[in-house]
Design a protein around this nucleic acid. Structure first.
Length: 584
RNA sequence: GCGGCUAUAGCUCAAUUGGAUAGAGCAUCAGACUUCGAAUCUGAGGGUUUAGGGUUCGAUUCCCUAUGGCCGCACCA
């Protein structure tokens, strides 16, 4: 009997057809299959409750009819129990668990099974997207880390993903920066640490413009000159961007991020005329107070709150470039879906943008891609306010990662003193960065994020180190036993038997459902939660059931269990963007 | 003023989007290393889910009111 990758999905389909057989109104019946609390079984179907209530039927009687209509092979796979007011509980039989483990025996096989939901689709994911001329600080971490995980999840479900770093390289900050560059440049500092120097100059320019309207005016003129193509200003601008992108890349390398394209705001500068024309001729945009704006009369707030797409002085802004960006992603990348990952403060902007794009594309008969604004909460200090270090600056991402690695190095040196310093550094690099990534990913992205060093670089509890440690222990077992090919063992031992073995196997087969949930909601923390529970089941199993036993049939089945745990664990960590280890 | 997000154990967070007895980690307490790695495991205590109402067979989840926090609202991105 073939065992499907996603058991919950398969159960859902089979219940739908059974509903027809049982004489239910099949079109109106949704089985509502979900993973269940282990006390009740592996999966539960709750749909009977709502269905029966709406029709004033006895839910238990409906459930019994439905269960009676299930094909015989379902009851050979599951123990089926109707419980409470009408829940249908499904508990996988050990033989089914065994069959799943035997079938899904390699990374390639897992991916092939999963890659159907978005097969053949193109998705553009816009994430990280920092402004140039500044260093990345902890506030930039979330978009980068969450965005990368989303890319990997979409790829795993079969999509072709375009990773786009939509850098802020054309904003008004450049007027102030160029103004300061011309007057306060420290050439020596520029040679040593150019990004630091640009940041200093920007602060000078910003402060001067705040204090003196005349400076602000001069800064505006510099921006106008830049946007008009003045060679001097253009050269400064280019240098700033080159330096910034070089510094960003070092961080991206550590985080395992490789963008396919880096198309910032400046890229769209020469495409704005078409945007003005199309939105004007379709009647979507209108003149208001000298600016070109879009109102949405059907929307309670945006009927009066304008979406400004051309300023009164004739200049474009980020609304203009974002509109151009949407069009480019459709025409150039043939996007079926667009995901933009930014913090929640831009929610209004993207709601207005998407409303405008929908009307615009409809009016021009352009195909409309799925549009998703993936938001996340702010990173705050312990006081709930915007994050600052003691001296008032922000915490640099570079420093955060270095501190995490240093902590990991201290721990690995203490625990694994037999390793060479090089090995310990390599391990600390993985553990440190993974800890920072995982701390961010494991939290539901919509809530604000209280930053603390301890939390970001913690190595105990629900952390990356816990997951990596579980993996390292599995690798260690294979090393000790001299068994090759740990990720795809095909050992066929005796039947799974102990409670810990069965609990671990039950957790493994729910990988598909965790992936589905994380991908559908674009929330990687669901996958983190699953992997944490998986590692927990493994650790519990490890404590009570020894693998290296003399009984070869027992040893073989446990080796297979270890192999599948490792496969799912490493695949899952890979989808989150974390690197893994064979020892630590 | 208008609007959005948010409030769960001492602290930091979950709760599969309306399901069964609200779960973890940290911290506290009690146990487990001569046996595959103790960065681990087993157990205990800790809750009127901000408050009050409503809808529902069923509410942390949906609706209303109030309160606290964060944020957005005409030319920054």
């Amino acid at each position: 009997m073939p065992v499907p990758f996603n058991l919950a999905d398969a159960l859902d389909s089979v219940l739908k057809s059974a509903a027809k057989t049982a004489g239910l109104e099949a079109d109106a019946f949704a089985p509502e299959v979900r993973t269940a609390d282990a006390r009740h079984g592996d999966f539960q179907a709750n749909g009977v409750l709502g269905y029966s209530k709406a029709r004033k039927l006895n839910p238990r009687a409906t459930a019994e009819k439905l269960v009676a209509a299930l094909p015989a092979e379902v009851s050979s796979v599951y123990e089926i129990v109707i419980a409470g007011p009408g829940f249908i509980n499904f508990t996988l039989k050990p033989a089914t668990l065994q069959a799943w483990l035997t079938t899904h025996d390699s990374a390639a096989h897992l991916k092939a099974s999963a890659a159907s939901a978005k097969h053949g689709q193109a998705w553009v994911v816009d994430y990280s997207s920092p402004n140039t001329a500044k260093q990345m600080h902890v506030g930039h971490l979330r978009s980068a880390v969450i965005g990368e995980a989303i890319c990997r999840l979409l790829e795993f479900s079969g999509a072709r993903v375009v990773r786009d770093n939509h850098i802020g390289d054309w904003g008004t900050q450049f007027g102030k920066l160029i103004w300061a560059y011309q007057r306060h440049l420290d050439a020596a500092a520029l040679a040593v640490d150019p990004l630091q120097e640009f940041e200093r100059l920007y602060q000078i320019g910003n402060a001067a413009a705040d204090a003196d309207p005349a400076v602000l005016e001069q800064a505006r003129e510099e921006l106008v000159k830049l946007q008009a193509g003045d060679p001097t200003n253009l050269a400064v601008w280019k240098k700033i961007n080159d330096v910034s992108l070089g510094a960003f890349q070092q961080i991206y390398d550590q985080l395992g991020i490789a963008f396919d394209v880096t198309l910032g705001e400046s890229f769209y500068n020469d495409q704005v005329e078409r945007i003005y024309r199309e939105l004007t001729e379709t009647g979507i945009a209108q003149e208001s107070q000298g600016a070109l704006v879009v109102f949405h009369p059907e929307h309670p707030r945006f009927k009066t709150q304008p979406f400004i797409m051309r300023k009164a002085d004739g200049a474009s802004n980020y609304a203009t470039t974002d509109l151009a960006t949407a069009l480019y992603r459709l025409e150039h990348f043939h996007a079926d879906g667009i995901v933009v990952v930014t913090d929640f403060r831009q929610a209004d902007h993207f709601e207005q943008l998407f409303l405008t794009v929908k009307k615009w594309f409809a009016a021009k008969n352009y195909r409309l891609p799925e549009l998703h604004h993936v938001t996340f909460g702010a990173v705050t200090g312990e006081d709930g306010k915007a994050l600052r270090t003691r001296d008032g600056g922000t915490i640099k991402l570079k420093e955060l990662l270095a501190e995490a690695e240093a902590r990991a190095f201290a721990l690995v040196s203490e625990r694994s003193s037999d390793l060479t310093p090089e090995e310990r550094h390599a391990i600390a690099g993985v553990v440190g960065v993974a800890s920072v990534q995982y701390a961010d990913l494991s939290q539901n992205r919509s809530s604000d994020y209280v930053f603390s060093w301890d939390k970001m670089i913690s190595l105990e509890g629900n952390t990356a180190a816990y997951l990596l440690y579980a993996g390292a222990r599995i690798h260690s077992i294979f090393r000790k036993l001299g068994v090759a090919d740990p990720l795809s063992r095909t050992d066929q031992g005796s039947a799974l038997e102990t409670p810990a073995e069965l609990a671990l196997a039950r957790k493994i087969v729910k990988f598909a459902d965790a992936i589905r949930l994380a991908t559908e909601t674009l929330r990687p923390h669901f996958l983190c939660l699953y992997l944490y529970e998986l590692a927990g089941e493994f650790s519990a199993f490890y404590a009570v059931d020894k693998v290296a036993v003399d009984d070869l049939a027992v040893r073989a089945r446990r080796l297979q269990l270890c192999s599948r745990t490792l496969l799912v664990l490493e695949t899952g960590l890979g989808l989150l963007g974390l690197r893994t280890l064979t020892r630590m």
